[in-house]
């Protein structure tokens, strides 16, 4: 049996003390242990950002790709060897900004993988610029006069474009987050776990305390995640298009919004019905029939 220690490397995380990333790191390790997985059975694919830095702190097979491009790499890894457990870890800039196109297409494709997004509503590693999920009006290094755009809503987007497991976790609630990640990994299909992850250094608005005052758990309110309409209604609760306002009373749902059974991309490929691509022999492939069609 593996322990959380098995999923750690010799490098201790370089995140800022108190960073929400620690909670996600812990939840991932817990989720792996809870499923009885060993480090060599998992491939974790990372983008670039503070979230991507976890590549050197998490002991599994890893692929630390380019900024915004973790999803295509993860998709191919899964299609090349569908025996692997593939988990992708990214941030809001990575997955909802530069890599948004890939995120949407991966969702509609429904490749069997889990996507954990460190959503801190800010660009942390580049030291404090606005992100696609930053709230309207927020002042950052790139928006000194207040952000003009309204935030992207990852949950509503995921439900609408075809993700089959859509959840929101909170870095301040590792117990719930662990369960959501376990559920996502066990789910067959594309699973999004968007994680509210306070950036203690560059986001002085969406702090742990700000979230503690607002989050609630869907499960405790009897939400049925198979009900798409209900999921949609809950998704609409937050983020709002309203300007940033400390006194505003938001309610932020966390937990599993939506789940759906749908054939995965791999299910539709007879090429890998028997065994993964990596196990196909390459010697003596006969191309005579191909030549005959061109003769």
């Amino acid at each position: 049996m593996s322990t959380t220690k098995d999923f750690e490397t010799k490098q201790f995380p370089t995140w800022c003390p108190g960073c929400g990333d620690f909670g996600i790191w812990t939840a991932l390790k817990n989720a792996f242990v809870a499923q009885g997985l060993e480090p060599h059975q998992i491939v974790t694919v990372f983008g670039i950002g503070c979230s991507g830095n976890m590549a050197s702190f998490l002991n599994t097979y890893g692929f630390h790709g380019l900024h915004g491009r973790s999803i295509p790499a993860a998709t191919a890894i899964k299609l090349a060897n569908n025996k692997l457990q593939v988990v992708t870890v990214g941030g809001d800039g990575d997955g909802y900004g530069i890599g948004l196109g890939h995120t949407i297409h991966a969702m509609r494709r429904n490749v069997d993988m889990t996507y954990v997004v460190h959503d801190n509503q800010i660009y942390g590693l580049t030291k404090g610029q606005a992100s696609p999920t930053s709230e309207k009006g927020v002042t950052t290094k790139s928006t000194p006069f207040g952000l003009i755009e309204t935030p992207l809503d990852p949950i509503a987007m995921a439900i609408s474009v075809g993700a089959t497991y859509v959840a929101r976790g909170f870095a301040g609630n590792t117990k719930q987050l662990t369960e959501l990640i376990v559920g996502a990994m066990k789910h067959k299909g594309f699973a999004l776990v968007d994680v509210l992850q306070p950036c203690v250094t560059f986001n002085h608005h969406n702090t742990f305390h700000w979230f503690y005052d607002r989050v609630y758990e869907l499960e405790k309110e009897g939400h049925n995640p198979k009900d798409k309409q209900a999921a949609w209604t809950r998704a609409m609760e937050w983020p709002t298009p309203l300007k940033i306002d400390e006194s505003r009373v938001d309610k932020i749902p966390t937990g599993l919004f939506y789940v759906e059974d749908r054939a995965t991309y791999e299910d539709e490929l007879p090429q890998i019905a028997e065994k993964p691509l990596v196990e196909h022999p390459l010697d003596n492939i006969d191309i005579t029939p191909l030549m005959e069609t061109l003769s």
Partner: peptide
């Protein structure tokens, strides 16, 4: 299907190239 390979049309060439780097890593 005849030769057991996967052909993936992607959303753009960025995805295509990143995919094949991932597939190469996976061993195919």
């Amino acid at each position: 299907r005849k030769y057991n390979l996967i052909v993936k049309q992607t959303e753009d060439e960025i995805a295509a190239m990143n995919m094949i780097v991932g597939a190469g890593f996976a061993g195919v």
